[in-house]
Design a protein around this nucleic acid. Structure first.
Lengths: 211, 211
DNA sequence: ACCTGAACACCGTTCAAGT
DNA sequence: ACCTGAACACCGTTCAAGT
């Protein structure tokens, strides 16, 4: 039972493991103390209180999202590759990402990606305010899509499900459309399709045609 | 002090008011009972428990998002008008929308909007699987953008803020770009710009050019 | 059918006391 | 500098008892 001195890192590691497995609600100070084999109050000495413990976990997660290396030949391809990388990273830490989001740090977490996008948009020939708009639009698109996708996965069987709502006469005269909407989308395919479409529109030489 | 019989509606109204003002964390069963002037346990008789009380509030919110009437002359304009309407509705109920999201019902909440989009995409000449892709891409885009925007607003002063990170040499050779990224975006403008760009790309006659 | 208070098993947090 | 148990003020929930 002899345990070496408790450290802040040790507390954070145990807390992160708990959150990764069962989500933040499963992280109680008493449960964490039990896991670590110490008194509850020791944890307070090392990390302050529960709120700042969660803050520290979030901070860690933000730092872990640091390195983004685009790949591909054209700027458009490289932008899409950034999108893919982000998608994979996010899907590995669903609970922690949700916490980053709740704390309003989503934007900060994506700053490395934003810098990569700045690079690519510049390589595509965009400058100044128009380049900034393009970077932000793509960034919002990627992050937003991933949030929606996460939401879909977490959701229980929706009632009424899309399947029921998109019966044969939901889209009159287009049974193929009804059928397509009645079956669940392929998230990866739709993600790439969306990012490609937006990128294409934003990098297009002439911005005059406004919908 | 004579109070008329407590009803389920009354409980939901008081709970919704509490959540609208101070968020779900401020909704405690004991506090709600105090507000209503009853014993805590009476609430349990009417709504089950806290979890199903929150479920009921979410259900209400989903139903309130029912009516969507597009406006505008072209399909593209009408799609953008749907986006605008959704944005306004969402911004009026931030806490409740977050709860809908947490419960994984975001998609269901947007079904009326989806139906409007189906209509417009069809009017623009898209059919079958390609129409379904366009509807979903636009829907994900709108919902995702609004989630990200909400997140930005809720976030405290970000450290380090974008202002500090986008100093003059962040985008070498393009000071105008650096300046644009250092100042906060105009969310409404960026929203419209994004939706328009994606819509333009998706409704374009030739889908052959893939990034 | 509806309401009640008492009790239970949990929380996060503080604090004085230890070494 | 680090750890501890006891105590406080909260939770959500259950239950037997009232009308």
């Amino acid at each position: 039972m002899a345990r070496s001195a408790l450290t802040r890192e040790e507390v954070l590691d145990a807390a992160a493991a708990l959150v990764r497995r069962h989500g933040p609600a499963a992280l109680t100070m008493r449960g964490l103390a039990a896991e670590l084999g110490t008194a509850v109050t020791s944890i307070y000495w090392h990390v302050g209180n529960r709120e700042s413990l969660l803050d520290a976990l979030v901070e860690r997660t933000v730092l872990e999202m640091g390195a983004i290396r685009p790949s591909g030949r054209t700027p458009a391809e490289r932008i899409v590759s950034v999108a893919r990388l982000l998608r994979r990273e996010l899907r590995e830490r669903p609970h922690l990402i949700a916490m980053v989001h709740e704390r309003g740090l989503t934007e900060r977490m994506f700053l490395p990606a934003q810098q990569a996008l700045v690079q690519e948009v510049g390589a595509a020939g965009l400058r100044g305010a128009r380049a900034a708009d393009a970077v932000r639009a793509i960034q919002f698109q990627i992050v937003g899509y991933l949030l929606v996708e996460r939401n879909r996965e977490r959701s229980p069987a929706q009632s009424p499900g899309e399947g029921e709502l998109w019966g044969p006469d939901a889209a009159p005269g287009d049974p193929a459309l009804s059928r397509a909407l009645a079956s669940p989308p392929d998230p990866e395919r739709l993600f790439l399709l969306s990012v490609r479409a937006l990128t294409r529109a934003l990098l297009a030489p002439d911005p005059a045609s406004r919908g």
